[in-house]
Design a protein around this nucleic acid. Structure first.
Lengths: 142, 142
DNA sequence: AATTATAATTGGAATTATTCTTGATCTTGC
DNA sequence: GCAAGATCAAGAATAATTCCAATTATAATT
């Protein structure tokens, strides 16, 4: 499996193709922003940021690019309640902790060796295609 | 804690008040439908069903009732991807398995004694207020 | 290199789920 | 019974997202 772990530089090279997806200029720039903004931006966040480099890009294109990247498994789409979808370049299996107070979203990794089936009574015979674990809470005290 | 486990009868009595929420006729009927329809209906599903008994009820009222019930911890709201919210009278901690083929949603219970913190690296100091676990997949073959 | 075919992008309109607003109606405490 | 407050109905408004038709870019073929 190819490793898409990012370089932080704004000028990082992005290949012409990733996982079979032709990386057009727009897709490159959208992807680049996700690599830089690790705070789970919404489509609109990406749109505003990307306009610095592609002033004529449209919001529809941002949605299209994000969808293409998601479809090809290059990024992940994350939903919290009914809020706008957020996007995440972290492909390793992980959940999210949503800080109610600050709105910040933290990635939550699995403990090594941990397996969901140890904790849940999965329907027998079911093949799990995707798992979404979302925690909501806060950091009390200071 | 009070046990709201339901009776299946369409004529089951619903008290005038639950958890401090005044149970108006509309709220009673909405709640009754959730007790009967254990398949995680959407607000619109509830709306269509409830019209049998309250022909003049509006969709906005169904939304209001559902929200009031959720706010008072009488039912739970469950979101899958960006689809319509669904509602669930099962208050015990559980997740959901969403069958991609049939669209059916199965409750997924925790194994006795299981604890999320055994599996996840929770952010230290975080107090978890709510957990949402959603699985998507299918039952292959017959 | 020109032509054709295919895919991507734009901008705006359309859609969908949900919330808001306003006035009417019901409930409850006095 | 009456005032205050809560709830309800109906439709308008909103927000996120998708759709659509026209244009542009890219790739494939001659």
């Amino acid at each position: 499996m190819v490793n898409h772990t990012p370089d932080i530089s704004a000028e990082m090279e992005i290949p012409d193709e990733i996982s079979g997806l032709r990386m057009t200029r727009q897709r490159q720039e959208v992807y680049r922003i996700l690599q830089q903004e690790r705070n789970h931006p919404t489509a609109n966040d990406v749109f505003m940021r990307v306009k610095d480099r592609l002033p004529n890009i449209s919001l529809a294109t941002v949605y299209n690019c994000l969808e293409a990247l998601v479809q090809h498994g290059i990024i992940r789409q994350v939903n919290f309640e009914r809020e706008s979808s957020r996007y995440c370049p972290n492909l390793s299996e992980h959940g999210h902790f949503h800080d109610e107070v600050t709105g910040v979203i933290h990635d939550v990794t699995f403990k090594p060796g941990a397996c969901l089936a140890d904790v849940l009574n999965l329907p027998s015979g079911a093949v799990i295609e995707d798992v979404e674990i979302t925690l909501r809470g806060k950091f009390p005290g200071i």
